[in-house]
């Protein structure tokens, strides 16, 4: 990225440095980066986009809007992070809409949505920021809307994602992303939070009778997880239990297989598991039929 300092940027746009700083305060654009010494560094692409937009609009506000749409380049996690850090829902919606014109929903979630929210997360040990909280809720709502628009399930086997994290943990968003991607693939997926009453949750697991259970996040005790896995295994014999993003502590000889770190890889591995089960069932049915004929 080529950058210039405030004075050069002001000359490029034909305004005073003070005007440029006032736009930053009022519109949040152009958005300079800061050097270690605190000096502003403006992205040349943003400045050029703004300069061109001045020729096509009637005021600075419209020009900024136009430059944001065009000048910041293709929709990226960085652009979405910028919109979310300004609490600008309209712009965030627009970035994802633009992303959907060049990427699938799956890739938009993986390459734009989740990384943008992760960029806003406070470092470990620090209290969460309002920007991250807002971004988390906005992303969760976006994926909830995506779930409602998903096609009806075409596969009978339910998959249960047990989310042990608490908002606004990033793991919780990944669990929701996995649920969305599974549903879009025609799987009957359901994501439940593990902070509910343990007895009722075990009962719910029995009712759902999942073919695969995914333990996600790192917010529950081993004891609580063990009870849930027991409930799932009692409801359905041979249920697959998987770890997604480190729900279980790393051990040498873990009996619970770990899914890929991304929701997309995890979805593919789960579908492969379900396909394997379906193939097994068909093989068993065929051999049973052969036995009866004999």
């Amino acid at each position: 990225m080529t950058t210039v300092r405030t004075n050069a940027a002001a000359v490029m746009l034909g305004v005073s440095p003070n005007t440029l700083r006032s736009w930053e305060r009022r519109f949040g654009f152009p958005t300079p980066r800061r050097t270690a010494g605190g000096h502003r560094q403006f992205d040349l692409r943003e400045l050029e986009a703004l300069r061109q937009a001045f020729e096509q609009t009637h005021n600075v506000s419209s020009a900024v809007r136009l430059a944001r749409e065009r000048g910041a380049g293709p929709p990226s996690a960085r652009r979405l992070r910028s919109a979310l850090s300004r609490f600008d829902e309209e712009e965030a919606d627009r970035v994802l809409e633009e992303s959907l014109t060049v990427r699938s929903v799956e890739r938009t979630v993986e390459e734009v949505l989740l990384p943008a929210v992760e960029m806003l997360a406070a470092p470990d040990g620090e209290s969460p920021t309002p920007e991250h909280g807002f971004a988390w809720r906005w992303a969760a709502a976006w994926m909830a809307a995506g779930r409602r628009a998903a096609p009806p399930a075409s596969r009978p086997e339910p998959v249960l994602v047990l989310d042990t994290s608490r908002p606004p943990a990033t793991d919780g968003l990944h669990a929701r992303a996995l649920e969305l991607l599974l549903r879009r693939a025609g799987v009957r997926a359901l994501c439940l939070a593990v902070d509910a009453d343990a007895g009722r949750l075990s009962s719910a697991v029995g009712t759902i009778a999942p073919r695969a259970v995914v333990l996600s996040g790192a917010g529950a005790s081993l004891d609580a997880l063990g009870r849930l896995v027991y409930a799932a295994r009692r409801a359905v014999s041979g249920v697959g239990v998987f770890d997604f993003r480190g729900a279980l502590p790393e051990r040498g000889a873990a009996s619970v297989p770990r899914l890929g770190g991304s929701a997309l890889r995890a979805r593919d591995e789960l579908i492969a598991h379900l396909d394997g089960r379906a193939a097994n069932r068909e093989r068993l049915a065929r051999s049973a039929g052969d036995g009866r004929r004999r």
């Binding site: 746009l13 305004v15 005007t19």
Partner: peptide, 28 residues
């Protein structure tokens, strides 16, 4: 286009359409 005032008389050949008085409008 924002403050409605005419450009400054010294702006005979301005480098930009941005109003030098308010910085928020373009000269129309």
């Amino acid at each position: 286009g924002h403050c409605g005032r005419p450009p400054e008389p010294s702006d005979t050949q301005p480098a930009t359409r941005v109003c030098r008085r308010c910085g928020l409008g373009l000269v129309l």
